[in-house]
Nucleic acid binder design. Structure first.
Length: 534
RNA sequence: UGGGGCGUGGCCAAGUGGUAAGGCGACGGACUUUGAAUCCGUUUACCGUAGGUUCGAAUCCUACCGCCCCAGCCA
């Protein structure tokens, strides 16, 4: 078993490529085979070194232990050229002087057969001479091509004498100016697979029509013949995967770059806090088939939640702070509570969290006039501060505009640790942070980039921007975090209790000026209840 | 109106002649110092449609319907 992932280095990898990488690398893993990362770098005008670097990084991140390479199609150019001469010798390829426009016209249409080029029956010697001179750089771009001689009346347009080589006086990111003719995908791909001994050449559905050509080249050459198998590419709700649209998002400044945490790119997901394991899990759950489908984004989110639930240490963080004064708590007293890093995994230990008279609570955890099912804090109501004390609201302080600016509360000294001697129960348990000890941080809350399940569904005459979610990014400043988070390093992941999973941004976070990205929220039953029409 | 594919519950997806796995979601309930997690249960599919073959069909045959891809010197 030998598989490969053959990206063209002309863009960043996204979750759809992730599916392909997991599929191919997974086969190699499961059957003890090989998996090659091979760049299909046959078009110098579109390809750049920047892209190969990002792709190598992404593939190594996803499948480090299975990946061989990087390999490059451009390393096989000489061999490909020799094989092209071989086809010419066999009378199976010819140099065509028709212009691009003429070739298009001669190709016919979906329903009408094509016409043969007047240059189709040149002698082998003339073809060889011309092809060598193409390589030598004697002709300008677009003046001639090498074509396979197959069947101009084939119902499969790919078989109507496909172009094998075009003249391109362009500098290649790896071969420099060594070549001025470059092989076309159909000609090159099977050869690359054959050279590497690929057994299963797995590609997406749109190449199904190309398979007869893939087979034809290999058969005519009589070289090792891998088998091409197609599968449906991934579509995700609320997400775009086309290079064109992704590029628009980046170039239009709708996102901060290819690795913006809202992007479905592997680098974006990584920066968002996704793990390689979660992406593998996702890839395995969605399966592989030939039916076009659209996978629910919720499944991807489920995968990362499930993993982070197990591995992410918990932390207390107040995103929308509301000041709370505990009136009966001594003015200058500070005590520390030992808080478990993970309630379900005691082996992860505890950490000290300071408590004092002035605290911050989440604004959403208080309602002056609570509806029926609200069981958090309200005037006269008692709740538990997680791992600390029971707290009762005794007063509300408002500003001139009538906005709540502070809560006055009392605590039950006998409830230390969050349990009372009388064993009385309380409905709500809230996260909190000591005002005097909290550290400030910026928190970036992300939502889907698009409002529609299918962002490509744009009303007639309108721009794709109508589907953009104006609230896909919310930057919160002045968030209050427990002091232990001060030493969090870029990439570190936490569960902010009762809220969701967050990671320290790998680009913008600095010690003393931390920036957290929301990876995914916790499931929120309360939000669901609130949305129900009463 | 040429060719190549695909159509199984809300979303994915097994199953290729023996009478419809699983996951996600949704909905109930238990438990709970995260309205999370966990646990239990429910969601009981005219297998695109219509015919046919067969003791028996999602699986085989025929016709029809719907959706996707192909006319780059892109990949």
């Amino acid at each position: 078993m030998c598989t490969r992932f053959p990206p063209e280095p002309n863009g960043y990898l996204h979750i759809g490529h992730g599916k392909s990488i997991c599929l191919n690398a997974g086969i190699a893993r499961d059957y003890g085979g090989k998996f090659n990362l091979r760049f299909d770098d046959t078009n110098p005008v579109k390809e750049e070194e920047e892209y190969v670097e990002s792709i190598v990084e992404d593939v190594r991140w996803l499948a480090p232990e299975f990946t061989a390479g990087p390999l490059f199609a451009s390393d096989y150019f000489e061999q490909m050229y020799q094989w092209a001469e071989e086809l010419i010798q066999k009378g199976l390829a010819y140099v065509d002087d028709l212009s691009a426009e003429e070739i298009r016209q001669y190709r016919g249409t979906l329903t009408e057969p094509g016409k043969e080029s007047p240059y189709r029956y040149r002698s082998v010697a003339e073809n060889l001479d011309l092809f060598r001179r193409m390589r030598a750089g004697e002709f300008p771009d677009g003046s001639r091509v090498l074509r396979a001689k197959i069947d101009m009346s084939s119902p499969n347009l790919n078989l109507r004498d496909p172009v094998m080589y075009r003249i391109l006086h362009a500098t290649h990111h790896r071969t420099g100016d060594a070549w001025c003719i470059y092989p076309m995908y159909d000609w090159a791909h099977g050869l690359e697979d054959s050279i590497e001994g690929i057994t299963h050449s797995i590609c997406t559905l749109e190449f199904e029509d190309h398979r007869p050509l893939y087979d034809w080249y290999l058969d005519q050459l009589g070289i090792y013949h891998p088998r091409q198998i197609e599968f449906a590419r991934l579509n995700l709700t609320y997400t775009v995967m086309s290079k064109r649209w992704l590029l628009r998002l980046v170039q239009g400044g709708y996102v901060s770059g290819w690795d913006d945490p809202r992007m479905p790119t592997l680098s974006g997901l990584r920066r968002r806090g996704y793990t390689a394991e979660a992406i593998w899990d996702f890839a395995e759950r969605i399966g592989v088939a030939k039916a076009n489908s659209m996978v629910d984004l919720g499944l991807l989110e489920h995968c990362i939640r499930e993993e982070l639930n197990v591995r992410a240490p918990r932390a207390l963080a107040v995103l929308h702070p509301l000041r709370v004064v505990v009136e009966n708590y001594p003015e200058d007293q500070v005590e520390e509570f030992e808080v478990p890093n993970h309630p379900q995994r005691p082996e992860l230990g505890t950490r000290p969290v300071p408590f004092s008279r002035v605290l911050y609570l989440e604004r959403d955890d208080f309602m002056e006039q609570p509806p029926a099912k609200f069981f958090r804090l309200a005037p006269g109501r008692e709740v538990r501060l997680m791992n600390a004390y029971y707290l009762t609201c005794v007063g509300v302080v408002k500003n001139a505009a009538g906005e709540i600016v502070e809560l006055r509360c009392t605590y039950d000294p006998t409830s230390r640790g969050g349990v009372t001697p009388d064993g009385r129960k309380v409905k709500g348990t809230l996260h909190w942070v000591s005002a005097a000890h909290a550290i400030d941080a910026e928190v970036r809350l992300y939502d889907n980039l698009f409002l529609k399940e299918n962002p490509y569904d744009v009303p007639e005459g309108q721009d794709f921007t109508v589907n953009l979610n104006p609230e896909s990014l919310k930057v919160l400043t002045g968030c209050k975090l427990e002091p232990g988070l001060a030493t969090a390093a870029p990439g570190d992941r936490f569960q902010f209790m009762r809220q969701g999973y967050f990671c320290v941004d790998s680009k913008d976070s600095r010690p003393g000026a931390l920036v957290f990205n929301s990876t995914v929220g916790l499931k929120d039953t309360w939000a669901k209840i609130q949305q129900q029409p009463e």
